[in-house]
């Protein structure tokens, strides 16, 4: 899954910039230098940033401005880092906190 915008009718070329590599749960993921961790994950289709403490449900970025803390992950060993306002750095380790316990939600 690739959700990156490369050409934008108003903003022009959005594909530029240096590439760095971060490690998400141990797996390498390319990212654009300076972008927030959550954006790099979302671009690759990784939407679940953590599993809730209570029920083990998937949670993901909701506000993208550092308010809601739904995107908090463990970054370089530090817990509860808001990934929507924390820029990527080359070699950064990003781990998904919590344990998935719930199956698919169907109404």
């Amino acid at each position: 899954m690739d959700l990156r915008v490369r050409r934008h009718p108003v903003l022009g070329d959005m594909g530029g910039g240096d590439e760095v590599t971060i490690f998400v749960d141990g797996r390498p993921l390319p990212a654009r230098a300076g972008e927030p961790i959550a954006a790099a994950l979302y671009a690759a289709g990784i939407r679940a940033t953590r599993y809730s403490r209570g029920k083990g449900e998937a949670r993901g970025p909701f506000c993208m401005v550092g308010r809601c803390t739904e995107c908090a992950m463990t970054v370089d060993g530090i817990e509860n880092v808001r990934t929507c306002v924390t820029p990527v750095r080359d070699g950064m380790r990003v781990d998904t906190p919590g344990v998935r316990r719930h199956g698919p939600a169907r109404v």
Partner: peptide, 27 residues
């Protein structure tokens, strides 16, 4: 029901993702 699922987000959040970071919130 299901409001906490990843992929549910504020329109402003989608706008940030899109216009600032160049990433679509979904296809």
């Amino acid at each position: 029901a299901g409001w906490t699922l990843p992929g549910v987000m504020g329109a402003g959040a989608a706008q940030t993702l899109l216009n600032v970071h160049g990433v679509l919130p979904g296809k």
